[in-house]
Design a protein around this nucleic acid. Structure first.
Length: 261
DNA sequence: GCAGCTGTTAGTGG
DNA sequence: CCCACTAACAGCTG
């Protein structure tokens, strides 16, 4: 469930299901998910209630009536499941039972997710050295982040300490839409390319976020729909190639996204 | 059976 | 310090 658009969907799901309900029971799972003692989570959550939510990058902050909030990172496979029955879902790592007998579970099969307690999202951001949310980023901030960097543009886009919210899939999408090759060094980008990438960060994330929330498919002009080696480029220009960049499998169209010499 | 995967982190090395 | 790469985590899918 992981990049910004999917977390935005989880936020909407949480807002629609679990706000303003008194927590009467807390059940915790594997210790490795919990970034402080499970006992602290139990004590903080019991008899408390979630009063609102905020998102930063790939993190969801559930604001509690008392004692700060619960922060969720979804890893690769985490999600929230709200239900009215007694059967706790497989892979539940945290289950809250509310006064009306409904429940929410944070499920996470691969256990790459993480749960934290924090005073506020701003404090969490600071403590964890997280960058600016990709959808809150201004062009000035973006240009400042690019300034002086020597690595690949794809590596930069995925660096959560610089910009929070973009992962492997949508980094590729932003670069495909911007017609920039993923291994292009940041200091080789023209001003025009920088402007284009900035615009596409917002465009791609908004489009995908809306699609996720509405349950719609992504536009056919998106690389994400053709993310496979040898697939036809969505602009019909070439065949999609697969390489490794910053340690991650990367798809791009060699015709649309020319490598700089 | 095996590789690969929307994420992060520790370790290595340039 | 910056950056790239690898392995590891754990379960499912093709």
């Amino acid at each position: 469930m992981p990049e910004l658009p999917e977390v935005a969907y989880q936020k909407k799901y949480a807002d629609a299901t679990i706000l303003h309900k008194k927590i009467v029971k807390v059940e915790t799972g594997d210790k490795k998910i919990y970034q402080s003692a499970k006992k602290e989570f139990e004590e903080t959550l019991a008899k408390n209630q979630i009063t609102g939510s905020e998102r930063l990058g790939k993190y969801l902050f559930l604001n509690l009536e008392k004692n700060g909030g619960l922060v969720i990172h979804f890893g690769m496979t985490g999600k929230l499941e709200y239900y009215q029955h007694d059967e706790i879902p497989k892979y539940a790592q945290l289950t809250l039972t509310f006064e009306d007998n409904s429940r929410v579970s944070f499920t996470c099969p691969r256990k790459f997710g993480k749960l934290y307690l924090a005073e506020s999202l701003a404090e969490f951001q600071k403590d964890n050295d997280l960058g600016i949310d990709a959808l809150a980023l201004t062009k000035e901030q973006f240009l400042e982040i690019l300034d002086g960097k020597t690595g690949t543009i794809k590596g930069l886009l995925m660096n959560q300490k610089l910009i929070a919210g973009i992962g492997n899939l949508y980094a590729d999408e932003v670069l495909f839409q911007s017609k920039v090759h993923p291994t292009t060094k940041v200091n080789q980008l023209s001003d025009q390319e920088k402007t284009e990438i900035f615009k596409e960060i917002e465009e791609v994330l908004e489009v995908v976020k809306e699609a996720r929330i509405e349950g719609d498919k992504l536009p056919e002009s998106y690389l994400t729909t053709a993310r496979k080696k040898g697939a036809a480029c969505p602009r019909n220009n070439g065949k999609i190639e697969q390489i490794k960049v910053s340690g991650r499998t990367t798809y791009f169209c060699p015709v649309c996204q020319k490598e700089k010499s």
